[in-house]
């Protein structure tokens, strides 16, 4: 795990929402470094800013102020086309409600992000088959995701997130919609794949048991980092 150049660095990151014309701060001056290969948990109660931070790191939203550097590249300078390609090639997303495309089969769901990459059909199909094998769903490839259990759906989502061999996987409350045992299985799988594939994993949770799967737990309260075991916490701007 190289500590020289962070994979992700946020500088003075702020996010405010306009709710009924009232300014509602979600993140206040976040300073954060995440290094390649890390498994990072963002912990905090509802409304603490976990999802907002994940969305900003995933280039799914625009910050109100501050910068996000991805290996020193400022993503705010990218246009929609470049951002789409960047998300497609460099990031994988796992959502609380799985967010599978219901009109696509399990195989097609995993294949979908690869369709936007310059891969041959053979390579694409081999990669999807390999990922489904890894998540234990090879025999469900032709099935509609609507016929799967919650745990199986999340496995499909994990396969989809990792099929493109991204450097960073972002998971927003990946076990929140699952029972405890299934949640543990999912975390085990994500950990195993993080180690095998070498992708950096950042996930949010409010469950301490789930957070234990991380190398590093960052705690957020009211949009501010209140604890980060690494030295980056020292750089946190506190009012």
């Amino acid at each position: 795990m190289s500590r020289s150049t962070p994979l992700i660095q946020t500088i003075g990151l702020k996010k405010h929402y306009q709710l009924d014309k009232a300014d509602s701060p979600a993140l206040e001056g976040i300073q954060l470094k995440i290094f390649s290969g890390e498994r990072v948990a963002l912990m905090g109660p509802s409304g603490s800013g976990k999802s907002s931070l994940l969305n900003l790191i995933g280039c799914l939203d625009l910050p109100t102020a501050g910068q996000i550097l991805y290996q020193d590249v400022d993503t705010s300078l990218m246009n929609d086309k470049k951002l789409s390609a960047f998300r497609n090639k460099s990031m994988g997303f796992i959502f609380q409600s799985f967010n599978l495309i219901p009109v696509l089969s399990v195989f097609e769901n995993v294949e979908y992000p690869l369709l936007w990459q310059n891969l041959s059909s053979g390579e694409r199909k081999a990669r999807v088959a390999g990922m489904l094998e890894k998540v234990g769903l090879a025999s469900f490839a032709r099935r509609s995701p609507e016929l799967l259990s919650g745990g199986q759906r999340q496995r499909v989502a994990i396969a989809r997130a990792l099929a493109g061999k991204p450097r960073l996987v972002l998971a927003d409350e990946p076990t929140a919609a699952l029972d405890q045992k299934t949640g543990r299985d999912i975390m085990e799988l994500m950990t195993q794949l993080n180690e095998e594939e070498g992708a950096t994993l950042v996930f949010s949770t409010h469950d301490p048991l789930v957070a234990q799967w991380a190398h590093r737990i960052i705690r957020l309260v009211d949009g501010k980092i209140v604890s980060d075991p690494t030295e980056t916490a020292n750089e946190q701007v506190r009012p």
């Binding site: 789409s84 390609a85 998300r87 959502f95 967010n99």
Partner: peptide
């Protein structure tokens, strides 16, 4: 609406 967000997260250009 949520699906449009998912598709864009997965790299589909607008």
């Amino acid at each position: 609406r949520r699906e449009w967000g998912t598709l864009r997260a997965l790299g589909t250009p607008a």
